[in-house]
Design a protein around this nucleic acid. Structure first.
Lengths: 158, 158
DNA sequence: ACCATATAGGACTAAAGTTGTCCTCTATAG
DNA sequence: CTATAGAGGACAACTTTAGTCCTATATGGT
């Protein structure tokens, strides 16, 4: 578990679809057709992404959606944030203090760190990269070189 | 969002509680009293942790639970895994292939990388550390110094 | 031997969140 | 002025999660 909601997952696919068409205006139904996701759902997602400013819309006939900025500048964290709100691994991170423990809760500070690490992982991948295919870059520079262990878990082979 | 279930969150607290008492045997009700979590819930969690081998139990009067190995050797990822199953950010990571896209899904490989990075973050913190309080080590090297970056995250100092 | 205490395991209920659909309103191109 | 397309919100079905309870089994102490 520890899973992204399906809607958010779709949201990333939808964003990637827009990224593929650069700055072209795509209607919600066009996106639905291309991604295979049900039209009303795509519509809902695009509205949500629009509210957060990740995509911009044009109404009326010939209207549609496009990304508000370069796909390289939109991270997965941005999309997740737009659709599910800020990443907060545990309740005590988002909601302050109604935790009976608090006093003897050394855990919290550590949770915040874990949370930050996860957020970092999500920020490090852009929508553009999702379109491009497996990211050598990411693998080489981040997971291997740093994000991971000191000796690099994933591909030492850098 | 992108949140751990509350039960898992409690599970970590329960594990930390056992860690605090070293190898002493604690009954479920004792743990409940110490953590402030409802007794039946604690009981349920301990059973779950027992099934995964993270804690060992002794039945009968004077029975109770204790960690099966040193708290240093149990990571948050272990606890999450025990209680919610393997970390899988998206469906396509755990369940193979019923995704209409698959063909033009460059996303998947990237999801796997993000997933690995998150898993890594969870593996890097032990239950023992949750008890010890804020991890200077981690803080200095990761959040402060870099958190993301190439310079070694949690304990470069290894 | 018996009883009190504890865990094992599973059934079950209630609450909450997630998904997905639909309807009405507004804006724009032709 | 009409067809198309987004905006916004209501809502119903479904799934998951959280928490409780009950019965069976094991063990220590009297």
């Amino acid at each position: 578990m520890l899973r992204l909601s399906k809607l958010t997952d779709y949201g990333i696919v939808v964003s990637a679809c827009l990224a593929r068409s650069a700055m072209e205006l795509l209607s919600a139904s066009e996106v639905a057709a291309r991604t295979g996701i049900a039209a009303p759902t795509v519509s809902k997602l695009l509205k949500g992404l629009g509210r957060s400013g990740l995509v911009v819309s044009e109404r009326g006939a010939k209207g549609g959606y496009r990304l508000s900025r370069a796909a390289e500048d939109i991270s997965i964290a941005d999309v997740v944030d737009a659709l599910e709100g800020p990443v907060a691994l545990t309740e005590c991170i988002s909601a302050a203090g109604h935790c009976e423990q608090e006093s003897h809760c050394d855990a919290r500070a550590n949770f915040e760190l874990i949370n930050a690490a996860i957020l970092d992982a999500l920020e490090r991948v852009s929508v553009a990269q999702m379109v491009e295919g497996p990211q050598r870059q990411y693998v080489d520079l981040d997971v291997t070189g740093s994000m991971g262990r000191r000796e690099g878990s994933m591909n030492e082979s850098v």
